[in-house]
Design a protein around this nucleic acid. Structure first.
Lengths: 212, 212, 212, 212
DNA sequence: AATGAATGAGTTTTCATTCAT
DNA sequence: TATGAATGAAAACTCATTCAT
C-alpha cells in the first residue's frame, strides 16, 4: 500500500533528525492544540513546547499550517496503525464485534488527539485538506471491509448501501465518544457505551441479539 | 421554559434596534464563518457584511467573541424552533419516524449553519461555552422525549440508557449529514439516507422493519 | 497630460487626509532612506519619523515597498514640476542655456532626493518599476525637446540621434552632480560645474563658445 | 603603486585556497546580486551558488558585507586591469580616441558587473566605502591622464578643471551605457553610441571633427 | 578545513478595540 | 447613534551568524 502524502519541506537534510524533531513538534503541538486550539496557539509556543527555538522549528516546516498538517497526519497514522491490528478478513460476527470494540477502545485512548483533529481539520487550507480527508475515507473503508466480509461469508445479509451507512455510523459514534465526552461520558462508562452500541448495531443488522 | 442566556452588552439602549442590528450581524457573520471560519474572519469584514461601520458594530457587542456567541446561539434557536413543530408527546412509532425524518430535513436545510456551529463552538471561551452546550443537551433531550414517550406508551421496550444512546446517535447522524457532506452526500440522497437510518434504527429497536 | 500612475491602496477613505498623511510619510522616509537606504530602514522607523504609529501608517499603504514607490514617485513629480518652469519651445541658444542651467540648479537643490531615488529605484519590484522609469524617460524627453526646438528653428544643426545622446548626457551629468558629490563637489562649485558643462556642450554642438 | 586595501579576515590559513574560494564566492555572488540585489540575496544562497556550505563560506569571510566588499573590489580590479592595456602616455588624439573607445567596450562587456557595483556600493558601511571609492577616483584619474598627456604634448589646449570634468563625463557615460541600458541600448548600438560620444567630445574639445 | 543544525533578535504586517467627532 | 481614523500589542516568519562535530 503506497502512501501518497504531501511533502512538508524541511531545510535540514538529515532524514532521521527530521523524523525525530517532527515527532517532538507533534507531541508539543497536540498538547497545545488540545488546550487552546490551533489558532490560539502561537508558533513560539509550539517551538517552546517542542523543546527548541523558533528558528530551529522553522528548519523543519515552512508555515504554521504545516504543523497542523503534520499533527493531523500523524494522528490518522496512529489510529490507522492501531486499527490494522484487527483481522478484517475473517468474516465472522465475533470478529466484527471484536473489531468494533477494539475501534471504540482506540478512540477512547486517543480521544485527545481525535478531538484535536476533529476540531481543526477545517483549518487546513484547501490544498492540503484532501490528503487528510483521504485518510478519513480509508478508515471508514476499513470498517466497511469488516462488515462486508461478513456479508460475503453469508453471515450477514444486506446491500452495499447499508454496509456503507453502517460503517459511517460506527466511525462517527467512535469519534463522538471523544468529541462529545462532556455529554456522553457523563452518562456511560466506555464498556456500557460499547455494549449499548454493539447491541443496537447487531439488533439493527438482522434482529440478532447479543446481550441485554 | 425560562431561557437562561448570557447577556451580551450593548451601548445602545433601543431594544428593537439592538435586535435588528444583531440579526443583520448574525446573517453577515454566518456567511463569512461558513467560508473562512471564525478566526480568519475579521471584525471589519463582519461589520461590512452586516451593512454598518466597525464603530457601529461595537455599539452592539463588546468583543469579537460576542459575535460568535450570538451566531451559535441564534443557530441553536432556529434549529430548536423548527424542531418544536414536532409533536413529541404522541408516543407512536409513526410520530417517532416522522420526528426523525423531520429532524434530518431540518439538518439538511440548515447544514451551513450547523457546520459553522459544529466547527466553531470550541472557539468560545470557557465561560460562554456552557450556555451553548446546554442547548445541545436540550436538543438531545427533545429526541429522548420523542423516544421515551413510545416507551411510556408501551410501543417500545427499552431501558433509559438505551433511550439516551439512541437519542445521541440520531442527533449525531443528523449533524454528520452536514458535517461530513463531502463523504456522505456523495453516496446518498437525503431520502436514501433518511430511509437507511430509520430502517437501521427501527430494526435495532425491536426487529421492526419499515421498508425494503 | 493625463498621468497614469499606480494606485497605492489605502484603507482610509478621506482623500485629503490620505494626501496629508502620505506627504508626511514621504518626508520622513526620504530622511531615513538618505541616511541608511531603503533596506536598512524599518517600517517602524518610517512610522515614527512620520509622526504616527505603525498601525496608522499601514492604513495608508499596503506594503513597505509602497513607501518606496511613493517616495520615488513624489521626487520625480517635484523635479518635473520644477522643470516645467522652463520654456521649452522658444528654440534659442539662450533659452537652451538657461534651461540647462536651471536643470543643474534643481538637481543641486534636490540632490538628497535625487540620490535616494537613483540608489533605490532598483529595489522596486518588477511591476512598479515601469511606472517610475516612464517618468525618467519623460524627463529626458523634456531635455530633448529643449534641444530639438533649436534644431527646428535652425539655430542648431544635428540629427535626431545626436539630440538624443545630448539630452541623455545632460540628464546624467545633472544626476551625477548629486550622486558623485563626494568626488565632483570637491573639485567644483556649482557655478563652475555649470559653466564647464555648458561650455563643453556648446563647443561640442558647433564650435560655439560661451565664455573663457 | 602599492594597493592599500581593506583586509577581509579569513579563519583559513592557506592563502591559495583563500584566493580560490573567494573567487568562487564572487562569481556566485555577482550572479545573485545582479538578479536580486545585495539585500535580497541571502548568505545561504551565496554559499550554494559558490558551491560550498554556509559554514565553509564563513571560514573565508566575517560578515555578509565582506562579500559585497569583495565583489565590488574585484569588479574594480577587473575593470582597472583591462584599462591598463591602454597606453595613457602617448598623448596623441588617436590614442585618446582609442582609449575612450576601448573604455566603452570594457564597460559594455562588463555591464552586469558594473550595474551591480553602481547599485550596491552605497550598501557598504561607512568604513569600507572609502576603499572602494578610492578605486573610482583612480579610474577617473586614468582618464584624466589620458587627456592630460594630450594637453602636455600640445595636442589639446585646456585647463586642468576642464580636463577633470571631461574625464568625469567620459567615466559617467561609460557607466550609464550599462546602467541605463533599458533606455540607451534601445536607441543605439554600441558603435553608434561610441561614435556619437567621441564626436561630441572631440567637437567639444576644440571643434575637431572625427567622422560623419 | 568543511559541514550544516541551531539560534533568536529583528522584521513586516495584521487586526481587535477605542474614542473623538 | 453612527462613523472611521488611530492605536500598538502580538503574530508569523527570516536569516546572519555560530559552533560542535
Amino acid at each position: 500500500m503506497t502512501e501518497k502524502r504531501r511533502q512538508v519541506h524541511a531545510s535540514v537534510k538529515d532524514i532521521q533528525l527530521i523524523e525525530k524533531r517532527r515527532s517532538e513538534m507533534i507531541r508539543g503541538a497536540v498538547q497545545l492544540f488540545k488546550q487552546k486550539g490551533f489558532h490560539r496557539t502561537t508558533t513560539r509556543e509550539i517551538a517552546k513546547a517542542s523543546g527548541f527555538s523558533i528558528g530551529t522549528m522553522y528548519e523543519y516546516i515552512r508555515t504554521k499550517e504545516d504543523v497542523l498538517y503534520l499533527v493531523c497526519d500523524s494522528i490518522y497514522d496512529q489510529v490507522k496503525e492501531r486499527l490494522q491490528q484487527i483481522d478484517f478478513e475473517q468474516g465472522t460476527l465475533e470478529s466484527l464485534q471484536l473489531g468494533i470494540t477494539y475501534y471504540f477502545r482506540v478512540m477512547d485512548e486517543m480521544q485527545d488527539e481525535v478531538l484535536v483533529m476533529h476540531q481543526e481539520v477545517k483549518s487546513l487550507s484547501k490544498d492540503v485538506l484532501p490528503y487528510v480527508l483521504k485518510k478519513e475515507v480509508e478508515m471508514v473503508s476499513m470498517m466497511e471491509t469488516l462488515i462486508q466480509r461478513c456479508v460475503d461469508r453469508g453471515v450477514l445479509e444486506m446491500d452495499e448501501k447499508k454496509v456503507h451507512v453502517l460503517a459511517q455510523n460506527i466511525f462517527n459514534q467512535g469519534q463522538m465518544w471523544g468529541f462529545r465526552r462532556w455529554m456522553i461520558q457523563k452518562s456511560f462508562t466506555l464498556d456500557e457505551y460499547i455494549n449499548l452500541q454493539t447491541d443496537l448495531l447487531f439488533a439493527g443488522i438482522n434482529g440478532y441479539k447479543t446481550s441485554n
